[in-house]
Simulated scan of single mutants.
Amino acid sequence: MRLVGGRFTYDLAILAELAAFKPIPYRIRLDGGEATEIAATLIAVGNGTTYGGGMRICAGAEMDDGLFDVTVVGECTRTELLKVFPKVYKGTHLGHPAVTTHRVSSIELAASGITAYADGEPLGALPLTATCVPGAVRVLTGR
């Protein structure tokens, strides 16, 4: 959907996805703990707060804390998702009962037929393991 551009592109993509929407069964392991089977609409792993045109999906994330923020959107109806979706631009979706958040140094995700993405680019099919490495990147500022 590159014809429109900007935030509106992401809004259109969400509406298109809702047409064929159904929760996906995932297997998730946080920080090497016990694996859990969950049905989720979305699992976002971030060390920054936003993606996709300013959506604050991991609104509490801090880039320098050495942890990923994991936002899990559990099972919701299409109607409920449409009501909650606008809240992602302010980060207030995190208060919804179907949304849980975690702060972890590592995560393992598995789901059949699902492709993982990083910064909008496909990484490959699940399963995947991601580990946050504190201090791995040095950022220079103009100060």
Rank of each mutant, 00 (worst) to 15 (best):
R2E: 15
V4W: 02
G5I: 11
F8T: 10
Y10E: 12
L15S: 10
E17M: 14
R27N: 14
I28C: 01
I28Q: 03
R29F: 15
L42D: 12
A44W: 06
V45G: 05
G46D: 10
G46M: 08
N47S: 10
T49K: 13
T50R: 04
G52H: 04
G52I: 07
M55S: 00
I57A: 09
A61H: 06
G66V: 01
V70L: 10
T71Q: 07
V72H: 10
V73L: 10
V73K: 02
C76R: 03
C76E: 07
T77E: 07
L81N: 00
L82P: 12
F85V: 11
F85P: 05
K87F: 13
G91H: 02
G91V: 11
L94W: 05
L94M: 10
P97H: 09
A98Y: 05
H102D: 08
R103T: 06
S105V: 10
I107R: 06
E108D: 13
L109A: 08
A111K: 00
Y117L: 15
G120Y: 01
G124V: 05
A125Y: 01
P127W: 04
P127G: 09
L128C: 08
A130M: 12
C132D: 06
G135P: 11
V137E: 03
L140H: 09
G142P: 14
G142E: 15
G142F: 14
